[in-house]
Simulated assay, not measured.
Amino acid sequence: MNLNLFNTPPEQWTEPLSPGAQVLRQYATAHTDSLLAGIHAIAAQAPFRQMQTPGGYTMSVAMTNCGTAGWITDRKGYRYSTTDPLSGQAWPAIPADFRSLAQAAALAAGFPAFQPDACLINRYQVGAKMALHQDRDEPDLTAPIVSVSLGLPATFLWGGLQRSDKVLKVPLLHGDVVVWGREARLVFHGIAPLKAGQHPLLGEARLNLTFRQAL
């Protein structure tokens, strides 16, 4: 089903994934410049880094955060922290235009009261991936997740409530936004290894912004 969103151009449409989840195709494309400028400023304060999982595995994805809290992982476990462990300082604030985009996307997907206080920013180089996982470190699981894709195309892996459930492979392009919540809130999801390519703005890379209510 293809539905226009609030008088958006015809190339923008919604694509259902499962109950409670949908892709808003090209929803963030017009915001590319401000998003990239914001990411550059955030990374200048809180650089991208490849974190270590509790099991000692170094993630292939480089990550930073902005907001009241940032998601981190190390030998102690997965959790949110109000400070950047590299600097001991508070994470950079979520830029106003980031917040507005996330809230508008959530509203377009049927989640009208989204108040993101954390934004995870992932940088994928060719070959980087994200294993199937659930986002369950947030105390309020009634709030949705809003995920923005920039740069190289990626294959989004969308499963079910069990890790063993069948996985749908969903192509994500620059500017696409995925929103999920309600019955889809704890669906297992991930990113297949990023394929080689060249994006006109980001080169051989993909950036992903994931907005959450973390505190």
Rank of each mutant, 00 (worst) to 15 (best):
R25Y: 00
R206N: 09
G56I: 03
A44N: 06
L194V: 07
G110R: 04
K169Y: 10
P193E: 10
I42G: 14
V61P: 01
A184I: 10
A118F: 07
W158R: 04
W71M: 11
Q12V: 09
G181V: 01
G175E: 06
H174I: 15
D33V: 15
A62C: 10
N208R: 01
W158P: 01
T68A: 14
P19I: 15
L132F: 12
L172R: 00
A154K: 10
E11I: 01
L209T: 00
G110M: 01
R75V: 13
A214D: 08
L207Y: 09
I42Y: 14
K166N: 09
T14H: 00
P54V: 03
I94T: 08
Q125P: 12
R25K: 02
A154L: 11
A131S: 15
D176K: 06
Y80E: 05
Y124K: 02
P200H: 09
H189D: 01
V170R: 04
R75L: 15
L186V: 04
L86D: 13
Y57M: 13
A43V: 12
H31K: 14
K195A: 13
W91F: 05
G160R: 01
L161G: 14
G160K: 06
L172A: 00
Y80W: 05
P200C: 07
A214I: 06
A90Q: 00
